[in-house]
């Protein structure tokens, strides 16, 4: 086991201890029982969306992750590279995190746990198939679900700012199901970084 792997194992244990105080028992057991698999490539999840495009993890990038050290600066680019995607998707009119969404948020949590000074805005969005006001509330519910999950993975609640855009800022505008599927989303957007100019709406 190289140094980097040991560091990941430490982190993993620490996050479990931390999480145990949060009564998120099922999540906790699942993550503690899982054999330590440092730095798998991110789960492949076809987003079909142009912004951000699904990031292809090339071999050399995966390799560079393994070689990252404490000196890697906390940047939006590094977060995106590490997480694979900043976006999770939801089912229609639902704020439940499915397995794919949880796997993505696991990586968000891992990265955030590496950089405790970084804060994140959790931005819930909704599709067009509802009233403007209801979709706004639904976006907040999705952001709240992301926050609950990330805190269960050891990210301090104060670092996470849930918010909603409702259907005001769709990723896709087609009225078809495939387009609207992309709008039922939550995004983890880093805030408080010098390099965080790449927030939504740039």
């Amino acid at each position: 086991m190289n140094a980097s792997e040991r560091r990941w194992q430490d982190l993993h244990i620490r996050s479990c201890l931390c999480a145990s105080t949060l009564l998120a028992l099922s999540v906790l057991l699942a993550s503690c029982q899982r054999p330590v698999q440092p730095l798998r490539p991110p789960p492949s999840f076809d987003m079909q969306g142009p912004t951000p495009a699904p990031l292809k993890v090339r071999e050399d990038e995966a390799q560079s992750r393994l070689l990252r050290d404490h000196e890697t600066p906390a940047t939006v680019e590094d977060f995106e590279r590490y997480a694979g995607t900043t976006r999770v998707l939801f089912a229609r009119d639902s704020a439940e995190l499915d397995a794919a969404a949880r796997a993505i948020l696991d990586r968000h949590a891992q990265w955030l746990n590496l950089y405790p000074e970084v804060r994140a805005s959790l931005q819930g969005h909704a599709d067009e198939f509802g009233s403007r006001e209801h979709q706004f509330a639904l976006g907040e519910k999705r952001a709240a679900a992301m926050k609950f999950y990330l805190t269960a993975q050891g990210v301090a609640a104060e670092r996470l700012v849930p918010t909603s855009f409702g259907k005001e800022h769709p990723a896709r505008t087609g009225g078809d199901e495939i387009s609207q599927n992309q709008n039922r989303r939550g995004e983890t957007v880093l805030i408080g970084l010098p390099a965080s100019a790449r927030e939504r709406g740039e």
Partner: peptide
């Protein structure tokens, strides 16, 4: 107005 918090509005 509506105020949403922790998934409840």
């Amino acid at each position: 107005f509506s105020l949403a918090r922790d998934g409840e509005a």
